[in-house]
Structure formats: structure tokens, C-alpha cells
């Protein structure tokens, strides 16, 4: 009985782990997420090199040929990372920070630049995509990019060199009631900004969702990304995201698989399996020999029944 419970439990754990491993991610900004809020399309087209741990000297082999995407960061940046990013910029690197309500402002503060993300919701009652929370940005100062669409975005303050402005009909919906009220600031607002730091440039975009799967092909959103990337190698910061429970579980399963793939673990599994099989075969043989003995004394008894009884007795 105990053995069957243990086997059922083990099988259940294996099946759950398999489901977790195979289930597609639905995490925001996840390169493996094929749904509307993922980055699978961006990842397929541009193959960015993901930085999943800390930002470090991997950025440095050729800063002037590298662009780093920091999209919707949620975790704060450390002093060391800020130092690395500043050096990367000074050496000619390009950073694209696309954020609205995340930890982008902390990074801007640590980098010592004046621009800040406002953090209030930008809406446009006229120039929009279906809904005023999807404002269309039509004043873009990048050749080849006529119009881009934002998704639940904010604005940039303190920018000296704006790259894109919202329409004059846009406003900040401070009380989130979907209507302009007295005192709510009216556009045009800066929604993309370029700052020169050393030899490099920091580009700030006040929407983290502009390149998610459902937004990438809207108007010139993809073209904007291509123009900002140019011919540079693309790296994407994934270390400042807070993973969901499913993603954490997935990474745990992946770690487990990695551990199981090591030679030590493989040897241990092999030896364990051999031991289990040997013991099982031994016990089968023991049962059979016990039944043979009984049958010798009672040849009229049913052999199959005796085998079953012996197996039950041994459990």
C-alpha cells in the first residue's frame, strides 16, 4: 500500500514537472512567450543576446557596435551595474530604455541624467488605436518612422532632445476616469528622448509595451526598433524582471534537468536503477521459491492463487 502511494506521488510530481516544463510561458516581456504580451516575435526577428544575471563586462567587447535593450525593468539597479552602464555609454554604446511604471527612473537617477518618467497615464481621445489608452504618436523625429502606437504609457519630463511627441490633444489622466478634467496637463508631451552620454547615447521611450507581440507590427513600431538598433548587435537585459511563479517553477525544473545532466547525477541514477531492478528480481525469485515449497507439500493447491497470496503477504 505504502509503495503504491509512493509510486503515485512520484509519478504525479514527474507529470507536474513535465507540464510546467512544456507549458508555454505567459510572462510579460518573456522572449519565450508566444502570446500577446510576450517578446517571442521580437526575439525571432532580432535574436537579442539575453543577459539573465547581472549586467557586466559582456557589454564591452565592442560598445560602439552594441545596443542594449532595457525593457520594463522592475528590479532596482545596483551601483556596480550603473557603473558598467555608464562606462558602456561613454565608450560609444547605445542603451534603449523602454519603461513606463517600472524602475527606469532609478536607473536614470543613478546615471545622473535629468530626464524622468512621469508615471501618470497618457491618453489621447482623438489619435488612438481603438481606445484612448493606446495613443498614436505621430510626431516622430526619426526618418522612415511616421507613426507609432503606445500601450498604456506615460511621458518623459526634463528631456532636452525629444525624439517623439504625443499629439496636442493628448492629456495625462491623473484620476484615471477616461476624461479630461480641470488641472490635468494637456499635450504635446515628450514620449521618446535621446541623451548623449560620452560617445554613446541613451534613448528613453515612455512605454515598455511598444514591442510586445500584439504591438510590434502596429504602425511603425517595428521600424522604430530597427532604426534605433541600426547595424548594432542587440543585447537584452532580462535580469531586472521579477519572474512569475510559473517562470520561477520553470527555471527550477530547468535547473533540475541541468543537474540531472551532469555525469555525477547520471551515474547515480544508473546505479540506483540497477539496484532497484536487482532487488525487485530477487524478491520475485524469493516468492516463486516459497510457493514451490508449499506446492510440494500441497500439490492440489492452486499455484496462481498461492503466488498472489505470497506477494500480498510480502507487501
Amino acid at each position: 500500500m505504502k509503495r503504491s502511494i509512493a509510486i503515485t506521488l512520484l509519478l504525479t510530481i514527474i507529470v507536474i514537472m513535465l507540464i510546467i516544463y512544456l507549458a508555454p510561458s505567459s510572462e510579460d516581456f518573456d522572449p519565450e512567450n508566444p502570446y500577446w504580451n510576450g517578446f517571442s516575435n521580437l526575439y525571432t526577428v532580432h535574436h537579442p543576446q539575453l543577459i539573465k544575471d547581472v549586467l557586466d563586462e559582456r557589454l564591452f567587447p565592442s560598445p560602439s557596435n552594441t545596443v542594449l535593450l532595457i525593457i520594463g525593468p522592475e528590479r532596482n539597479f545596483t551601483g556596480y551595474e550603473t557603473l558598467i552602464l555608464r562606462r558602456f555609454l561613454e565608450a560609444g554604446g547605445r542603451i534603449i530604455l523602454a519603461d513606463d511604471f517600472g524602475s527606469g527612473n532609478e536607473l536614470l537617477e543613478l546615471l545622473g541624467v535629468d530626464a524622468r518618467l512621469n508615471g501618470s497615464l497618457l491618453v489621447d481621445p482623438l489619435f488612438k488605436e481603438r481606445n484612448m489608452k493606446f495613443p498614436r504618436i505621430r510626431d516622430v523625429k526619426i526618418s522612415g518612422v511616421d507613426e507609432i502606437v503606445f500601450n498604456y504609457a506615460t511621458i518623459i519630463e526634463g528631456c532636452q532632445n525629444p525624439l517623439a511627441l504625443s499629439s496636442s490633444y493628448s492629456f495625462l489622466d491623473l484620476n484615471m476616469n477616461g476624461e479630461w478634467d480641470e488641472g490635468e496637463p494637456k499635450g504635446p508631451f515628450t514620449v521618446a528622448c535621446r541623451l548623449n552620454v560620452g560617445e554613446g547615447s541613451l534613448i528613453i521611450i515612455s512605454d515598455s509595451s511598444i514591442w510586445i507581440n500584439s504591438m510590434l507590427e502596429m504602425k511603425d513600431n517595428h521600424m522604430l526598433l530597427e532604426k534605433l538598433i541600426g547595424n548594432r548587435t542587440v543585447m537584452m537585459d532580462y535580469s531586472h524582471r521579477v519572474p512569475s511563479r510559473l517562470t520561477s517553477a520553470k527555471s527550477m525544473v530547468e535547473s533540475l534537468i541541468r543537474i540531472l545532466a551532469t555525469p555525477e547525477a547520471r551515474y547515480a541514477i544508473l546505479v540506483g536503477a540497477i539496484l532497484v531492478i536487482t532487488r525487485y528480481r530477487k524478491s520475485i525469485r524469493a516468492v516463486e521459491s516459497e510457493v514451490e515449497k508449499i506446492l510440494m507439500r500441497n500439490p492440489t493447491w492452486d499455484k496462481e492463487l498461492l503466488l498472489r497470496l505470497e506477494r500480498e503477504r510480502r507487501r
Binding site: 510579460d28 500577446w36 504580451n37 520594463g72 513606463d100 511604471f101 517600472g102 497615464l121 481621445p125 488612438k128 488605436e129 481603438r130 481606445n131 484612448m132 489608452k133 493606446f134 500601450n151 498604456y152 515598455s208 509595451s209 510586445i212 500584439s214 504591438m215 502596429m218
Partner: peptide, 14 residues
């Protein structure tokens, strides 16, 4: 907190 984005497919036309 504010959501990071909305699903454009589910947005009601205004």
C-alpha cells in the same frame, strides 16, 4: 500598481 499594458485585441473601440 498600474498594469504594464492591455491586450489591444480586447480593447473596446471608442
Amino acid at each position: 500598481n498600474l498594469p504594464r499594458h492591455l491586450n489591444p485585441q480586447q480593447a473596446e473601440p471608442e
